[in-house]
Design a protein around this nucleic acid. Structure first.
Lengths: 106, 106
DNA sequence: CAATTATATATCCACATGATTATATTATGA
DNA sequence: TCATAATATAATCATGTGGATATATAATTG
């Protein structure tokens, strides 16, 4: 079985993206369910522009995917992540959405 | 079997450390063998103070260990790393030291 | 088409971070 | 003890990065 060797530059730039508390929290919320931008804004108490920029970075790095539906944009974890990324995400706690209901939307 | 869940803040601060090309290269060189500071300076073409500061950060984060022997300080990977860290390190390419010989020391 | 809603982008700013230079520390050996 | 070598720390600086505010875009609805 071949090993998943990658370029040091590529790995470190992905890890730099992951090395942000807000982005890691986003990823922990995306474990299991897709969420739209306004839900993430709601859950993380982060401004909408800030959220938008974090999501853009994660998307450009291929870590998350977007699905547009009308005005809403739903984000979810990308399947087929490099192993070292998926292990990091597995290590994150599962966020408990509790009785949070999808606002329709914000 | 219990899962290795950690705090989001703790994980992101470790990943921030790993998200640096120089530090990742240091770790790739430390795979398999301990190296002293001057050897790392030599191999990475990084200034001695810069190297010293990177090593300090990695050591304070518990990713590497130091072993002092006279004036020399040897660094090596810490065993017992969190899984997500060791997977990252395993993903790094093994650096070929070629016919590089331990300078005695610099 | 106008108004509204969800999201994205642009600009600016405060702060963190990595590199460099200079200096300090520590150990060794003459 | 003095000189030297290996490493660490301090100070400074330039650059990068995240957040806030303002504005733009795009889709929906009346």
């Amino acid at each position: 079985m071949s090993v998943d060797i990658e370029d040091v530059s590529a790995i470190s730039s992905v890890l730099k993206l992951l090395g942000d508390k807000t982005r890691m929290t986003i990823l922990s919320y995306l474990k299991g369910h897709e969420l739209c931008v306004c839900e993430l804004v709601d859950l993380l108490h982060v401004s909408q522009p800030a959220m938008s920029q974090h999501l853009k970075k994660l998307r450009l790095a291929g870590i998350i995917r977007e699905r547009k539906q009308g005005t809403w944009v739903y984000y979810s974890l990308n399947e087929q992540l490099p192993k070292y990324v998926s292990v990091v995400i597995e290590t994150l706690p599962n966020q408990n959405l509790g009785n949070y209901r999808n606002p329709d939307c914000c």
